[in-house]
Write a protein that binds this DNA or RNA. Structure first.
Lengths: 195, 195
DNA sequence: CCCAGATGTCCGGGCTCTTGACATCTGGGC
DNA sequence: GCCCAGATGTCAAGAGCCCGGACATCTGGG
């Protein structure tokens, strides 16, 4: 289960994703070269295909890994407050701040609609959305005991979509948006609170 | 040349040696179990044999790696002084101090003659001796420009054997031995000095 | 129009880890 | 003294994965 072979496999995937990440940050999806990813990792081009299927698979895997890392931070912000609304506000602000600085996000959204990678946050955003929803939902259901699970899910869904929208199409500053979300969802949560 | 496969191979060897090192430190050569080395690394027993040949090969490789690390420190001590004699004194003291604290040395020499690993420093000390000689000699010929190469080699050989003897069979304190070596070899070097 | 470069696919070859089996030796218990 | 458990060392078959080369296809630029 934790054999050397398994660890090697994980390491290979991870290093390939490191190479892909750098390439995408440097030149976007179009600038990504399958041969480069392999060469930088010291592996043949075929191995890249074996691991990810095709070029789109490389992008997806890269974004998934980045999203996972992203969510760890956001969840930490959520957990730093006992009151759900405070946690929500902190998480929203954290997410927006981090997104604004994230090299991968910047590369994908460099010029509006120019890079195909941006589709992973828009027309093909299903995966990122579901992944984020799952991680946040699990976290919230555990840390918001006084909020009915279904209502917590609703909150996460709304906040998540608002945040994603602001990442793709920035509006007000992070703190302002965070406050806005908190003010909008606060009454809902208060009304639904079981205790 | 630096392919992922190559790195993986080096990593495997290194992790196997880590496991062997710990096992030897914990139970000496007799307490070393080929199956354990494999299991701790997450690899089959056969793989251990493929890498090292036999149990004695595992011990040898472990000692060689440790010796290499050891010599890096000793060479640094040598290089820290411009005067050959000062360097020699520092190196001898450094070597003796480190040897006294070294877990592998302590495991090998735990009870006099009890563990077969001790043979690598005594009756079968050829390898360690040659390896050390080679590393130190190369270093000395480069950093002692005013000493004829052959005389530098002689110095290294004498000092090395004295040090090894003191490691196996401790006499005076490191600083004392270092001073002794310096006093004995000083006149020789002065007489032979070309400048 | 053509070609260079990139994607995606296929396959044979080779290396290495795995698994299971087996022979041999040794030390301890009965 | 005998036997067995445990350890070393060897062998072969099997599987997985990376490599290297070849090939078809598509696209953008000269």
């Amino acid at each position: 289960m934790d054999s050397f072979t398994d660890r090697t496999k994980r390491r290979l995937r991870d290093e390939l994703l490191d190479a892909a990440y750098e390439a995408i940050v440097a030149g976007g999806y179009d600038g990504l070269r399958m041969a480069d990813v392999g060469r930088r990792t010291g592996v043949s081009r075929q191995t890249v295909y074996n691991e990810f299927g095709d070029k789109w698979g490389v992008l997806q895997a890269t974004v998934v890994r980045e999203t996972e890392r992203f969510l760890v931070e956001v969840n930490d912000a959520l957990a730093a407050h006992t009151d759900p609304i405070d946690g929500l506000r902190a998480a929203v602000e954290c997410a927006l701040r981090m997104a604004a600085d994230n090299p991968l996000v910047k590369a994908a959204l460099g010029q509006p609609g120019s890079d195909q990678a941006s589709q992973l946050l828009t027309t093909r955003g299903q995966q990122v959305l579901e992944l984020s929803h799952q991680r946040l939902d699990a976290h919230v259901r555990e840390h918001w005991p006084e909020v009915p699970a279904e209502d917590a899910t609703t909150c996460v869904d709304v906040a998540l979509r608002v945040v994603l929208s602001h990442i793709v199409n920035p509006g007000a500053a992070p703190a302002v948006v965070a406050d806005q979300v908190a003010r909008v969802l606060g009454p809902f949560l208060s009304a639904r609170r079981s205790t």
